[in-house]
Computed example of a mutant assay.
Amino acid sequence: MVMSFVVYEPWAQLGTLREVIATALYYENWHLISEQLTYDAAGSETSALQHFWSLSVQAQFFVVLPLIAVIVTLLSRRRATRVRIFWVAVIVGTACSFVYAWQLNAFDPTRAYFDSFARAWELGFGGIVAGLWKRGIVIPAAWRGITGWIGLAMIISSGFVFEGKEAYPGPAALLPVLGAAVVLLSAGSTHRASASRVLSHRSLVQLDRISYGLYLWHWPILIAYLTYRGNTDGVIGPLGAIAVLAAAYVATMLTTWLLRLPTRWAANRGVWTQLAAIVVAIAIAVVPATTSHAAIMRSADVPLEACSGAAALD
């Protein structure tokens, strides 16, 4: 919000404030669809909050899936029956979402990229993998040293093989999704050169702990930097990249430190305290953004009769 008034282009202020509200309430993906915005490469005219669409999809998934579990629980009293119904619902829902994503991606790739129903199969697939792992259905130990690297290669290569915003979440997304599944089901390999051992290295584990914060922070800082430099083509250079990453790291560590105390405090209290903490956190973003948006809209109102000639351009 501060950067929208200090750094970003003035014409982008209202759009940024609307995205702050959409992001805080976890409907950013639907907001981008309604505004007919595409997932653009970095540039001074690119949305600073477009990367939050994925968090909105995840939050919606984490609300819907427990509701499905509750409904299944109400339908059957027998635990074994509930488990079967639940997994059938997850598998069928994942398959339906995949078909929907395939069809929508062919006709409207921009909408498909953000659509929660088109993205659900990727998360559902992860749920199926978790179910397999929980039942002990994993890749045999003798193969994990090789399959882990194969899965990792599938994930990395997808960034070079496909144009993400046009191919995903269609069938092309099977490459990184299946790769992630293979890596997860290959975990636990004891071979020294296995992907599992390499990914478990202390430095990578430490990076993983702050990766969520880096994901949140790097993009708005990058857009702010490009806007300040007036780079519409997204060219940043080595020094610019180092500066953006360093700023994102500092912001991540600072916000992690600031949020550690209230989140730990809420976690040790009851459910209602935790829910209240979530509401307060959302309000911290939504209330100032809504107020600022309303103030700008009021100040922008100019009576038509007060404008004449060149004054109408003011």
Rank of each mutant, 00 (worst) to 15 (best):
G136R: 09
A187K: 02
A120G: 01
G136D: 08
I150M: 11
R111K: 15
F107E: 13
P109S: 04
V83L: 10
G179M: 07
V72Q: 12
A112S: 14
I68P: 01
S196G: 09
W149R: 04
V64D: 05
W102T: 13
A95S: 13
P171F: 11
P140V: 01
V90K: 07
I71Y: 14
P140S: 06
G151I: 02
C96N: 05
R77C: 01
G93S: 11
V72F: 15
Y168V: 00
L104W: 04
S116A: 13
G151A: 03
I137L: 15
A153N: 09
S97I: 04
S76M: 06
G93D: 03
I91E: 01
V83S: 10
A195I: 00
F98G: 11
A80D: 14
A120C: 04
A80H: 08
V88Q: 08
I139G: 11
V72T: 11
I139C: 11
A173M: 14
R135D: 10
S158R: 07
G127D: 01
F162M: 03
F107Y: 12
E163T: 14
I137H: 14
G148V: 01
L174Q: 05
A141K: 14
T147Q: 02
P171R: 08
W133I: 03
R82D: 01
V161D: 07
R84Q: 09
P176V: 00
G93T: 04
I156T: 10
A120V: 00
V182G: 06
G136Q: 08
R77K: 14
V88R: 10
R82Q: 14
L185N: 06
A193P: 00
V83D: 12
L67S: 04
F62K: 01
W149M: 04
G127N: 03
Y100R: 11
Q103W: 14
N105M: 05
R111D: 05
V182L: 12
L74I: 01
V161M: 12
D108L: 04
P109L: 02
K134V: 00
G170P: 11
I71S: 10
V63W: 15
W149H: 12
A193R: 12
G93A: 08
I91M: 14
F61T: 03
W149S: 03
I146N: 08
E122I: 07
H191C: 00
G164I: 01
F117I: 04
L175T: 02
